[in-house]
């Protein structure tokens, strides 16, 4: 297990968890989110390859309807 900081919370994750896997596990729809990894926006094309590493800081914005 590793620990990463996700939306301000320390979260335990299996090693080599990708962003895509984490989003799916949290029931996020990938076409409704924006993800920042250590201060950089993560392109959607990288979600499947990008692994979350120990001590990474992740911000996930999940957009909702209404405007």
């Amino acid at each position: 297990m590793i620990q990463a900081k996700i939306n301000g919370q320390i979260v335990d994750l299996a090693e080599k968890t990708t962003i895509q896997q984490f989003l799916q596990a949290q029931n996020h729809k990938t076409d409704r989110v924006a993800v920042e990894l250590n201060g950089q926006i993560v392109p959607k094309s990288a979600y499947e390859q990008q692994e979350i590493k120990a001590e990474d800081t992740l911000e996930i914005v999940s957009f909702v309807g209404g405007g």
């Binding site: 076409d31 926006i41 914005v61």
Partner: peptide, 20 residues
Amino acid sequence: AFDVPENKAMLANTVLEQLP
């Protein structure tokens, strides 16, 4: 100032990637 979440996410991702 969109209504639909997919459009909101599209704009945010595109601006953050292409217009940092």
